[in-house]
């Protein structure tokens, strides 16, 4: 229930395997193949970035949330509502801009920071332009649609709580904590919240933030993550094995700041010790390392897609969506 993920509607009704999710989406597309052909849209992953992402391609939902100074947790809730909604309804049957604004309006109520419907509508219009319907009744009607498709399961569990709980236990520095927090924000741009429990995502975020910092001279995220994943896999298959060292080379780091200036240790060795201790702790706590590896890869490939998106992607995506909404008359 509300405090307990294990008996929550999220676990019982809104957690699915990757394969199941792919099948659901395939079936949604198959419902109206003509529309799918007539209105080419970005891939799910690209759309997801367009709707949700924080940086690379300043996204729609986040932009609206920022504009309204929405708390991150409420934003994450809205993002998950959007994602759940589109496992039930073909995107080409909807006005995604209206759906995003509606999910935010609903999330703000559920996260106890409500905003008046008129404010949400007018902010959404300034953000999304006139593709967003001007009348609050449209948003209110869409709210019925969203709640109905979500089966009224509106209480969601986010990884932030696990992160807060583990921060003292794992001796995370404030920098670790804020990096982990960012990685969790980024996980909302992926399908992970539909596939994995929130604590797994939190553990992945912590893992990434500590591991990536341990190799301040990394050139590519991918190499670091691969090394981290290898280290984790080694522990997963053989918990008593020594923790392999994480390669330390040259170049930039995860957060743009000097990663070697961490609070807990000055030396590289000390930092690698931290990685070792973290992995040991995970192993002792019987954390599902396979899941952590899978999540790590998902986050890393998100960053790759992000980086590879051309600057004009946002404009192109928006045009495609607006064209679809207008031509189909589904504003």
């Amino acid at each position: 229930m509300a405090a307990n993920y294990w008996s929550s509607s999220q676990r019982l009704h809104w957690q699915m395997s990757r394969e199941k999710l792919a099948e659901i989406r395939h079936n949604l597309d198959a419902q109206d193949e003509k529309a799918v052909q007539a209105y080419p849209l970005p891939s799910y992953r690209q759309l997801s970035i367009f709707f949700n992402s924080r940086t690379a391609c300043p996204s729609q939902l986040i932009r609206l949330g920022r504009r309204m100074q929405v708390r991150q947790q409420a934003l994450a809730t809205a993002q998950l509502y959007v994602r759940r909604f589109y496992t039930k309804v073909p995107i080409r049957d909807t006005n995604p801009f209206l759906v995003m604004a509606t999910c935010l309006y609903l999330a703000l109520k559920m996260e106890e920071c409500p905003q008046h419907i008129r404010i949400v509508v007018s902010e959404a219009r300034s953000c999304f332009s006139d593709i967003m319907p001007a009348y609050p009744e449209k948003l209110a009607e869409c709210e019925f649609y969203v709640i109905s498709e979500l089966n009224s399961y509106l209480i969601v569990h986010h990884p932030y709580r696990t992160l807060q709980e583990l921060t003292p236990i794992l001796n995370l520095t404030s920098e670790d904590n804020s990096t982990s927090w960012q990685v969790i924000n980024d996980s909302c741009v992926t399908d992970l919240p539909l596939i994995y429990p929130p604590h797994i995502i939190a553990l992945t975020a912590i893992f990434l933030s500590v591991v990536l910092k341990s190799s301040p001279s990394q050139t590519s995220l991918h190499t670091t993550a691969a090394a981290a994943a290898a280290a984790a896999a080694a522990v997963a298959t053989n918990p008593v094995a020594n923790v392999p060292a994480i390669p330390a080379n040259t170049g930039g780091d995860f957060n743009g700041g000097g990663a070697s200036t961490n609070l807990s240790g000055n030396g590289q060795g000390q930092q690698q010790n931290r990685v070792g201790r973290l992995i040991e702790w995970y192993a002792e706590s019987k954390v599902d390392m396979e899941a952590i590896i899978d999540c790590t890869q998902e986050i890393i490939s998100l960053y790759e897609v992000w980086e590879s998106l051309p600057p004009q992607a946002e404009k192109v995506f928006k045009e495609q969506l607006c064209k679809m909404v207008k031509q189909r008359g589904i504003s």
Binding site: M110, P114, I117, A140, E141, E143, F144, I147, Y153, L154
Partner: peptide
């Protein structure tokens, strides 16, 4: 349609 009251949302959820 006017938007569902917060208390109704809470009770439903």
């Amino acid at each position: 349609y006017t938007g569902i009251s917060q208390s109704a949302c809470r009770e439903m959820a």
